[in-house]
Computed example of a mutant assay.
Amino acid sequence: MTAKVTLAMFGSSLVSAYWNGAATYYRGMIRALAGCGFDVTFYEPDAFDRQQHRDMSDPDWAKVVIYPATTDGWQAALEQARDADIIVKASGVGVFDEELEAEIPRLRSASNLIVFWDVDAPATLQRMQADASDPFRAQVPRFDLILTYGGGPPVVEAYSNFGARRCVPIYNALDPTTHHPVQPDSRFSGALGFLGNRLPDREGRVQTFFLKPAILLPDKKFLLGGAGWDRNVSLTPNVSYAGHVYTRDHNAFNCSTLAVLNINRDSMAQVGYSPPTRVFEAAGAGACLICDAWQGLEQFLEPGKEVLKVDSGEEVAAVLSGLTTTQARRIGKRALLRLLGEHTYEHRARDVKKLLVEQLARRAIPARRDEEVRHATL
């Protein structure tokens, strides 16, 4: 690209990770895309108290536009974004999603690209499959391109069945400038840490993979972080609740326990090929990662060598009982080296750049031909 390509993206939030699990993904991808020559503006609504819980200032690698969570607010933001070369609607903005998904494709022209970026594809597809009247069904074919947070072949096939012109998974990755090894912090000490907000489609798996092992290992300290676990949850005395953990403390959280647990949400575990941000945050900090089993894990980390894969709470307890500090450090170091070599956001951004530039070029060819014909007939 000789000149910068302008990219306008509507998402939940870039500057706040509060009730916003996609924040790490947005930040890593957009920073890397800016490094590849894209001029990015991120549009986010002032909703869900996220602006009151900001954990970063406006970055120098993207412009952030915060619009009121009102009809006038999103319409004004869309008008401002309409001239961008690439206009992206991410899933799960949280307010006026249906309206944005209907209106953004209307901005499609011969000189731009309209993209839907699904940061929760298994859940989106599950929702559409369960409801024949879901309004997004009609919008899928109107986007030039569907990008997904992950999901592999099952997600590509499902989106194709809904009429997607093209669907390409863009997996989570590591941003080593934000997630890296640090010194342990006594606030987060323990044998096993889990960090994740309380969500309906993950709560049962948290009971199975985290709270049950805590019952089985009463002499070991467990650390629970994330919003929502302080109400109507029965925690054994060996479970410490850290509450909402700001992103500035994620490295310390991941580096202070013997091991860190990943627990996928139901839909992501069922579909597979959907490594959440926590996998890359923890492994990027050099943590020994214990991960619930899902198809495609080996595409990112090698079980037994770079990650410890488990199928049940009993397996978590067994692994934790036999894990030494030396073994944990060795596994964490191997995982970090694997990610740095193959799975950083710079790797992902190069793929996205190639894809978007190719798609833009294809969109422009018919327009140029039409223009040539018009001039030839004058």
Results as ranks from 00 to 15, higher is better:
Val5Glu: 12
Gly11Ala: 12
Ser13Gln: 10
Val15Ala: 09
Ala17Phe: 04
Trp19Glu: 10
Ala22Tyr: 04
Ala22Phe: 04
Tyr25Cys: 02
Arg27Ser: 15
Met29Gly: 06
Ala34Phe: 10
Gly37Ile: 02
Val40Tyr: 00
Phe42Met: 09
Phe42Tyr: 15
Phe42Gln: 09
Gln52Ser: 14
Val65Lys: 04
Leu78Cys: 01
Glu79Gly: 02
Ala90Pro: 01
Gly92Ala: 14
Phe96Asp: 00
Glu98Trp: 08
Glu99Met: 08
Leu100Cys: 04
Ala102Met: 05
Glu103Asp: 08
Pro105Met: 02
Arg106Thr: 05
Arg106Glu: 08
Leu113Asn: 10
Asp120Cys: 03
Asp120Pro: 05
Gln126Thr: 13
Asp134Tyr: 14
Gln139Pro: 00
Val140Thr: 03
Ile146Phe: 03
Pro153Thr: 11
Tyr159Trp: 15
Thr177Phe: 11
Leu192Cys: 11
Thr208Asn: 06
Phe209Gln: 07
Pro213Gln: 14
Ile215Ala: 15
Leu217Glu: 10
Pro218Ser: 12
Pro218Ala: 09
Lys221Thr: 15
Lys221Arg: 15
Leu224Gln: 07
Gly225Ile: 14
Ala227Gln: 12
Asp230Ala: 00
Leu235Cys: 12
Val239Pro: 09
Ser240Phe: 15
Ala242Thr: 07
Ala252Trp: 03
Ile263Met: 06
Asp266Glu: 14
Ser267Asn: 13
Ser267Leu: 08
Met268Asp: 14
Glu281Tyr: 04
Ala282Cys: 02
Gly284Asn: 07
Cys288Leu: 02
Cys288Ala: 11
Ile290Gln: 01
Cys291His: 13
Asp292Ser: 04
Leu297Lys: 10
Pro303Gln: 14
Lys309Ala: 14
Gly313Tyr: 02
Glu314Asp: 15
Ala317Ile: 06
Arg329Tyr: 06
Arg330Trp: 11
Lys333Phe: 10
Lys333His: 15
Leu336Met: 07
Leu336Gln: 14
Gly341Arg: 13
His343Ala: 04
His343Val: 09
Asp351Ile: 05
Leu355Gln: 03
Leu355Asn: 07
Leu356Val: 12
Val357Met: 12
Val357Asn: 06
Ile365His: 10
Pro366Ser: 01
Asp370Leu: 12
